[in-house]
Amino acid sequence: MIAEAALSSEATGSLLGRWEARFKLPGLLMLIFSFAFVRDLRLLLPLLICAALIYRFSGLPLGYLFSRLRLPGFFLLAMAVILPFWSGQTELWRFGPLALRLEGLIGLLLITAKFTAILSVAVALFATTPLSQLTIALRTIGMPWLLTDLLLFTHRYLFQLAGDLRRMRTAARLRGFLANSLSSLKPLAYITGSMLVRSHDQAERVFQAMTLRGYGNTSLPLPVFRPALSDYLLLGAAMLLAAGFILAQYML
């Protein structure tokens, strides 16, 4: 995931890649939230420019962003079909029972711009931050250790279990199982149940092995770090931008 595909040398060497995660995460999160505050159409252009610049600082190719946007983009497509025709009173154009409405169109414009901007920054943030650094940053901004431990372990086993599930479904298919009607509910429930039993068994073993190596004895202190001037400057810039968007929204 974050490690393999995106963390190319360009990404790690880029401005965002060199920015200490413990400053980058709060900085960019604030910015992302300030994007969410925007409702004024005049702010959309600055918003998009800001997002584009940040993405540029990540050193990631544009194609990577598009590949990441494809999946959530389907949702946007659905909104594009619904909003302009259902939301609002001001009819711009009418075709039989269908009416194109101004408010819906504006809503769609807002959603599309904010969605694209937030996702671009999020992709830039996560693609330049390995999970290990991300968890340290999350703990620094106050996430309890129980959650960060859970995060690391879950990530460690996610792909293995997805593979287990795939092989179980393949084995079932070789015995003629096709998930093509509601009657497949029972075999699917059994497969899910078997997977939970397998995971549970494995968890016992994993836990025993971890206990033998001292897991749970002490809670690990966060590694100390001395931030560079650039870390502070970038955080300051992100905070200023975020404050700017929120202020502008309420002043305009």
Partner: peptide
């Protein structure tokens, strides 16, 4: 902490399922 491996593996299993 003792509950974490179990919760993590089951979480992973749930999200796969």
């Amino acid at each position: 902490r003792t509950g974490i491996p179990r919760a993590a593996l089951l979480t992973a299993a749930f999200f796969a399922a």
